[in-house]
Design a protein around this nucleic acid. Structure first.
Length: 268
DNA sequence: AGCTCACCCTGGACGC
DNA sequence: TGCGTCCAGGGTGAGC
């Protein structure tokens, strides 16, 4: 499940795309393109001017207000492929470059999608700040949490609160900050919000350094798995000892999501 | 307005 | 062995 660190790793792998011209776009599944604000034909022959990430979204920039936005949902993969090979079973979209390379989008569960948009400001207007960017500050986070009764974990997963955190990193962040995932967000003390803020940045930064987490099927653009799964403290470790205190990791449901935490270090 | 929950989808795990 | 059932989760939107 590509979250911010995985999407960031894929983005780095797509840097060679910049400067290459689009030779063709092939849609293999009717529902995978969610929005077409311009005709795909308008970018044929045009070079990719840039590739950037916003939250869990990847954006290919074509200029003249033309962007291709990709979200990989749970099981989506975006990767370089040799032109001759048969597309894998759930390949839904292929971008061919004039240099003869293919960028393929594969997504068995089809929770992901592709949008051809002209205005990224508008497209992302409900998305919260980048957790590793300058607009995400301790003060703003504190104001966003106060008076909220929802579990703090639900807010970490809320993309309008902060962009890019999914279920794995929410659990890891709360463990690092030593905060129980079900704590009402508004009940956090200032010092706890401080720990949480620090943990968000540290966990995500470390995960990027490890090229993301390969839990089931995540691979980067060059088909390499990530390494952060070896660093997980709580996610999917229920019944195993906490690396900090040795108590057994528990799994509960918070906000409808499977949630892993240490009952020793994360008290309600 | 804030919050919870069902829904979409498929592969893999699990139980009988 | 094989079949059926359940579960995972990101984002959206309905309903309380």
């Amino acid at each position: 499940m590509p979250e911010l660190p995985e999407v960031e790793t894929i983005r780095k792998g797509l840097e060679p795309l910049v400067g290459q011209r689009v030779a063709g776009l092939t849609q293999l599944h009717p529902g995978i393109v969610k929005l077409r604000e311009f005709d795909a034909g308008e970018i044929i022959g045009k070079p990719v001017l840039g590739v950037y990430r916003r939250g869990k979204y990847l954006v290919l920039v074509f200029g003249e207000c033309r962007y291709m936005v990709v979200h990989m949902g749970m099981s989506g993969r975006l990767y370089w492929s040799t032109p001759g090979s048969e597309p894998a079973k759930h390949t839904h979209f292929i971008l061919k470059t004039e240099a003869g390379q293919q960028l393929r989008y594969e997504d068995p569960r089809r929770f992901g999608g592709i949008w051809f948009v002209r205005d990224t400001e508008k497209f992302f207007h409900l998305l919260g700040p980048e957790p590793l960017g300058p607009n995400f500050t301790l003060e703003e986070m504190y104001r966003g949490l106060e008076k909220r009764r929802a579990p703090v974990k639900s807010l970490l997963l809320d993309q309008s609160f902060v962009a890019g955190i999914g279920n794995i990193y929410a659990d890891e962040i709360l463990f690092a900050a030593q905060i129980h995932p079900a704590r009402p967000a508004g009940s956090l003390l200032k010092k706890e919000v401080k720990r949480l803020f620090k943990a968000i940045r540290e966990v995500l930064t470390r995960a990027i350094e490890h090229r993301g987490t390969t839990f089931r099927d995540y691979r980067d653009g060059d088909n390499h798995p990530g390494r952060f799964q070896d660093c997980l403290s709580v996610y999917s470790r229920d019944g195993k000892p906490c690396p900090r205190c040795g108590q057994l990791i528990k799994k509960i449901v918070v906000g409808g999501r499977g949630t892993h935490y240490c009952p020793g270090c994360q008290r309600l």
